[in-house]
């Protein structure tokens, strides 16, 4: 059974600088996703729309767009769940390269600031770093992040202040800070609780609403705030504790 849908696509031509909406009518099946609809429009109507996509199963995180005002992955958004007409726009808070393709370099650079890796302390006696299922459970949710940048697109704070690290970087930083094998936690907290760190978040909560993997970046940021406060108290007391121990010696 097919149903007629009107698809409005925001387009941008970087050579002429023109910015407009294309309107296409398609007949869609029940199982058709927004990505399938775009593929169909490109194949059958030769529209030449530019967009990113790869895995078609919400794993690669490359087909992020704004559909009917909500940041979503096109491959896991079904047309039957959307109101007609369906409006597809590029992700917000990123510069548009062409049509639905955006430049996410700035946000990706911020992920680098979050030191997204674990540093193992390997001793001679134990050459592997062991993690129990209980320890893994703590980071399992935030480990699901696919860096699709939907949360950054939905964050109004990031849109108003591009220096803010953004919810994606904060969620990833939380994941590595909570990792039992990690040893640079304090260094990471220094950068995260700095001027452009987690304190700029005003807890709108929309980043968690749009996350296709239920990573809950909003929650991660709030927990990072608590960790930041404890880190500040710890670092303020540390020199005193050190000097006390020295004087005892």
């Amino acid at each position: 059974m097919t149903k007629k849908y009107t698809i409005r696509i925001r387009r941008y031509d970087p050579q002429t600088g023109k910015n407009w909406y294309d309107i296409h009518n398609i007949y869609a099946e029940r199982r058709m996703t927004v990505l399938d609809a775009l593929n169909q429009i490109n194949e059958h109507e030769r529209a030449g729309i530019s967009y990113r996509s790869s895995c078609r199963m919400s794993i690669c995180g490359s087909c992020g767009t704004i559909v009917n005002g909500k940041s979503v992955l096109m491959c896991n958004t079904f047309l039957k769940d959307l109101e007609d007409p369906v409006t597809i726009e590029p992700l917000r808070n990123f510069a548009i390269v062409k049509d639905l393709v955006v430049d996410t370099d700035a946000a990706m650079e911020k992920l680098r600031d979050a030191l997204p890796y674990t540093t193992f302390s390997i001793t001679k006696s134990r050459c592997e770093s062991v993690q129990t299922p209980k320890q893994l459970e703590k980071i399992k949710q935030t480990s699901q992040c696919i860096k699709c940048m939907l949360c950054v697109s939905a964050c109004p704070i990031y849109g108003l202040d591009y220096n803010f690290m953004g919810p994606a970087a904060a969620a990833i930083a939380y994941r590595y800070n909570k990792d039992s094998r990690d040893h640079v936690g304090e260094k990471r907290l220094d950068s995260l609780t700095g001027r452009n760190g987690v304190w700029k978040c005003n807890f709108v909560g929309e980043c968690s609403n749009v996350c296709p993997k239920n990573v809950d970046p909003a929650g991660a940021i709030q927990k990072m705030k608590v960790m930041g406060v404890l880190h500040c108290i710890k670092s303020a007391l540390k020199p005193k504790l050190k000097s006390k121990s020295k004087s005892k010696k």
């Binding site: 970087p14 050579q15 390269v97 108003l160």
Partner: peptide
């Protein structure tokens, strides 16, 4: 090629 800013 110009990129288009997409601010709120």
């Amino acid at each position: 090629m110009k990129k288009l800013a997409n601010t709120p």
